[in-house]
Design a protein around this nucleic acid. Structure first.
Lengths: 206, 206
DNA sequence: CGCTAATCTAGAACAAGTTTCAGACTTGAT
DNA sequence: ATCAAGTCTGAAACTTGTTCTAGATTAGCG
């Protein structure tokens, strides 16, 4: 298989090799700074310096800090999806498998709470100008969830349930990140919302 | 009844009359500016000017823009709760009543989408330093939902369901505000998540 | 009334996101 | 190899949230 082309949107003018490298350096610097101190620690001047790129160039690649962090999240999500694909969840019911997948993702985020903070805050703070990118993250998340459900073609009802699960996922993460909910609390919320899946599977829950 | 004391946290030193008036002017200016242009339009210098208060004073009352907007939300929530109390929802099941209540709130927000934008963005962007205030908003929301369910003492399961509903509510609002979901979509999501309530009411859904 | 501590004001100053600009460097096509 | 168009750089400037300061005002109290 071609080692390339796995990345994000294949639209817009194709990047040269050096441009691709710059983009990579920027995303790497962003993730690194975010891992240290979260949203606030990702300062555009520092990202520029760390990635050896002029500030103006950084802004050419990512038109705002939010764009940058959302792109960072897309990047991390890809990793995550790859990792999750390798060992599919073991639960009996679809609800269990989804909950298991999300809890696995949650544990991954716990290992880098500052990075999680930066990405999630950016995601929910994003305004209309970032909608396409945020939407892409959302679609990717949907794919991961549907994957873990093991569904080929979900019903509209099931898609609604998945959307609600995503809502809960994002919002629960926020309450955790801002110290208003414990890890256990998040777990309960995830398990609770996942019950909606069984509710929308009239054929039984196996 | 005493016409006073209905406001927020009755803790900390009591405010003099003029201070109470200042606080009110500030919140009013905040809501007004927010109604115009949303989060970005609430600029601290403008709020200070509109409310005839020095910038430093504004910061003494509300230690950050986020604090100010969250307080604005608390303020609005009180109105809302009062309004909702007057005409309780008519639905048959608890789930229907909660959905009806939230849709009513949603329609209110649609009348002032910019204000909604400012408040909701502030709420989800808030970091740990605002946790107490955000938590208060969350509790107030919980009360409104429990009220509409007509429950005296909810089970832990039901409280979980309510938390998930709140998650969905906030996150769905965000997707709507950032133009990634339609009004219809939000409605569906609310109705979907409200089904969790019936799921957690083993005694039947009347 | 007159004092003292707390509060308020005007305004400067600082921090970080964003924009702008002139000049150097790359790229792609001839 | 050469030229035009597009890109990158370094640095300054601008915007808006936040902090700080010195001096006026106000509130509570003897």
């Amino acid at each position: 298989m071609p080692a390339e082309a796995s990345s994000a949107s294949p639209s817009s003018p194709p990047l040269t090799e050096r441009q691709e490298a710059r983009r990579r350096r920027i995303l790497h610097a962003s993730a690194q700074l975010a891992s240290r101190g979260g949203f606030d620690a990702v300062q555009m001047r520092e990202v520029a310096e760390s990635s050896q790129v002029a500030l103006g160039t950084l802004y050419r690649y990512f038109p705002s800090k939010i764009h940058l962090l959302v792109a960072t999240m897309q990047d991390q999500l890809e990793h995550m999806h790859g990792t999750l694909r390798k060992k599919p969840p073991q639960g009996e019911t679809a609800a269990e498998r989804v909950a298991e997948t999300l809890m696995r993702a949650f544990r991954a985020l716990q290992r880098e709470p500052h990075l999680a903070d930066a990405m999630v805050r950016a995601l929910t703070f994003a305004d209309r100008s970032v909608s396409p990118e945020v939407d892409q993250v959302s679609r990717q998340t949907t794919v991961i969830i549907l994957d873990s459900m093991g569904l080929e073609n979900p019903t509209p009802e099931q898609l609604s349930a998945v959307r609600v699960i995503e809502h809960t996922w994002h919002s629960a993460l926020i309450t955790w990140l801002s110290g208003r909910a414990s890890i256990a609390q998040v777990k309960i919320d995830i398990e609770t919302v996942c019950r909606l899946i069984d509710l929308t599977s009239p054929e039984g829950q196996k």
